[in-house]
Design a protein around this nucleic acid. Structure first.
Length: 613
RNA sequence: GCACCCGUAGCUCAGUGGAUAGAGCGUUCGCCUCCGGAGCGAAAGGUCACAGGUUCGAGUCCUGUCGGGUGCGCCA
């Protein structure tokens, strides 16, 4: 019996390398082992012979035939043969199925800490669907990287000294708003005031006074005098974030970064560099500027202001300070416990009265930020080069995602042309409730299931497309429960669970297995299951959760296909519970493995796996 | 103007240089004689934007063109 799942492709590769040795090659080519396309003979194959034709002055089929003669393969390879220029392997069906039932090998732990920042939404209004993509992408990636063995720290940056926060807080004062009783969520209440303030500002007579008020509020924010007001908004936003299933290790407040002198220290650290200067004349007279031309080619004006001539620092300067802290160039922020998140993990936050804690100091960073900020992030990266830390500059990665359109149009938070995350989730859950009422009126816990499925549908819609593609948020698409959706995968999971429950009731759940009875249906499903570890590696390496999402769709489809398979005369071909003894055992084990993989995969995307739908 | 990203079926999208380019939605036709029809099977639908190039082999890599998006402030 096997214990851990064997890496079939690696074993085949090793055998090919060994066989190539006999051919007397100067250097080994890259060896690719892939699954054979549907309809072709064999299970796995390699095109290696084709690339060797010139060097060996032989036709690929001949080379492949030579390899067949010389290759030594494990006993589980039933047949080795040449197909076109390909060298194909057909495996023992029993082995393939058995292999798929074994637990996957744990991923080796990678050295060094990775700091991933996501969300980083201004604490001034409710979250909208544009933020949704960031949170889902960031949180899913975090789950995948952790599972793939990275030592990961997840951070959310709170821009509490920004203009947006100031405008919102001033709006409350301006309109004389007291408490939001009876209004609902606090962040919505503040957000509405913010939008109204911008409407007022269209009037030039009012604009001047409002501007003064905003500036005053901005100063109070910088002094830390409105921390509790900001915190109220932030906690309200966190409710939505938790509902989505996203969590962090630490919140980092901008005001704390500034107050602890990290910004000043970062600027001081840069001062010695030949790439920074304080011009006495010209456009930048009196400002502290950085020349990025050596690191970002092709710019018309490579100079970037870090400290304005009036002594205030730019947003970029703050980002540089943060990045220097993230990568351990600077130290000294204090943390304290902030919250216990729904999963039970503690959330910490920077705080003036906190204590030093081992956050930051990572050897690699990932910033999940909208693609429009690409230039700004390149500047931050360049600042590491300016600091002489090419090693670190290479290890800061911008996960850039394209913007989300709303029914084909650009959103605008300022104008209030948005759909809030709360609104979308509520609508999704409500629609699922209706589906459950129709399809499963006796559902034991419809509200709980509706929450899992509705939120899952929204999350999956945000994850399934590659990050660099613009997505158009359309209600009917994001809230669809059929086809390429989260609920499709959840349904596959629930159906598998249903079979296992029935097997339990009938007392056959741990029946003996007879792998000699394996049919092509089990093999097809097993081969999909076997891809899981490789897919995860791929998703982690490319920092691309959509790779896992696409795989889960394929796996669920393979299972649905198995579930519904029919014989040529239209009878069920793959019953589990009524299968002959021995084969029933094999199928039950396969269903268990499938369920486990679906659950694991859903969890890594941040979706729940409901037992009953 | 310069830079970055995108262009694959009517629509929305997959597709580590490798075998006949695949899904979902929509359209048409079938399937509860089994364990959940939020499902399955089938049909129709393609100049992989265009033109060159590299390669044994290009949707995938390179160059150019066209189309779309975004960025390039002493704003945040």
């Amino acid at each position: 019996m096997l214990e851990l799942r064997p890496d079939i492709k690696s074993h085949l590769k090793e055998a090919i390398v060994q066989a190539l040795g006999v051919l007397g090659l100067q250097e080994l080519p890259e060896i690719i082992v892939q699954e054979t396309p549907a309809g072709k003979e064999g299970d796995y194959g390699t095109p290696v012979a084709m690339g060797l034709a010139r060097a060996l002055r032989k036709a690929p089929p001949q080379i492949a035939a030579d390899l067949v003669q010389n290759i030594q393969l494990p006993a589980w390879v039933r047949r080795t043969f040449v197909a076109g220029g390909y060298l194909n392997f057909e495996l023992e069906p029993a082995f393939l199925v058995q292999a798929a039932l074994e637990p996957i090998q744990p991923f080796p732990q990678t050295a060094g800490k990775v700091l991933l920042e996501h969300t980083s939404v201004n604490p001034n209004k409710e979250l909208h669907v544009g933020h949704l993509r960031n949170i889902c992408l960031g949180d899913s990636l975090a789950r995948i990287l952790r599972f793939a063995g990275r030592n990961l720290e997840v951070m959310n940056y709170i821009d509490d000294t920004g203009r947006q926060a100031a405008e919102s807080l001033y709006a409350l004062e301006y309109f004389g708003l007291g408490s939001p009783e009876g209004y609902g969520k606090y962040d919505h209440w503040v957000g509405d005031a913010y939008v109204r303030l911008h409407q007022e500002m269209e009037d030039p007579d009012k604009k001047v006074a409002i501007e003064q008020g905003v500036q005053k509020t901005l100063h109070r924010l910088e002094e830390g005098g409105l921390r509790l007001e900001v915190d109220k908004i932030l906690r309200s936003q966190l409710q939505t974030i938790y509902r989505l299933g996203a969590e962090y290790n630490a919140l980092v407040w901008e005001s704390d970064i500034v107050r602890e002198g990290l910004l000043a220290k970062a600027m001081k650290a840069l001062e010695g560099s030949p790439y920074v200067s304080r011009p006495r004349e010209g456009k930048y007279a009196g400002a502290f500027v950085m020349d990025t031309s050596a690191f970002i080619p092709g710019l018309e004006d490579p100079y970037l202001v870090l400290i304005r001539s009036n002594g205030t620092s730019t947003y970029t300067a703050k980002d540089i300070g943060l990045q220097f802290w993230k990568m351990g160039i600077l130290e000294g922020i204090k943390f304290q416990e902030y919250d216990t998140q729904p999963s039970g993990t503690r959330l910490y936050s920077t705080h003036p009265e906190g204590l030093p804690m081992p956050f930051g100091g990572a050897s690699e960073t990932i910033n999940v930020v909208d693609a429009r900020q690409s230039h700004a992030l390149r500047v931050v990266q360049a600042s590491l080069e300016v600091e002489g830390r090419h090693d670190l500059a290479e290890r800061c990665f911008h996960l850039a995602y394209e913007t989300v359109l709303l029914e084909g149009k650009q959103m605008s938070g300022r104008k209030g042309i948005v759909v809030s995350v709360d609104e979308v989730l509520d609508e999704a859950v409500q629609r699922v409730r209706a589906v459950i009422a129709e399809k499963n009126p006796d559902h034991p816990s419809p509200q709980e299931a509706a929450e899992q499925i509705g939120v899952g549908a929204v999350r999956f819609a945000m994850i399934k497309t590659e990050a660099r593609k613009q997505i158009d948020f359309r209600y009917d698409q994001a809230l669809s429960f059929e086809g390429d959706t989260g609920p499709y995968i959840q349904y596959a999971y629930a159906r598998a669970g249903s079979i296992l429950r029935k097997a339990e009731e009938q007392g056959v759940s741990s029946e003996r297995t007879d792998f000699s009875l394996t049919t092509s249906h089990e093999v097809a499903l097993a081969k999909h299951l076997l891809r899981f570890p490789e897919v995860l590696q791929d998703a982690a390496r490319n920092k691309a959760p959509h790779i896992l999402a696409q795989y889960l769709l394929e796996l669920a489809a393979a299972w649905s296909s198995f579930y519904n398979a029919k014989t040529p005369d239209g009878r069920p071909a793959t019953p589990v519970l009524t299968a002959p003894e021995g084969l029933r055992g094999v199928r039950l084990e396969l269903v268990k493995a499938l369920r486990q993989t679906l659950k694991q995969g859903l969890e890594l995307l941040g979706l729940q796996a409901p037992e009953v739908m």
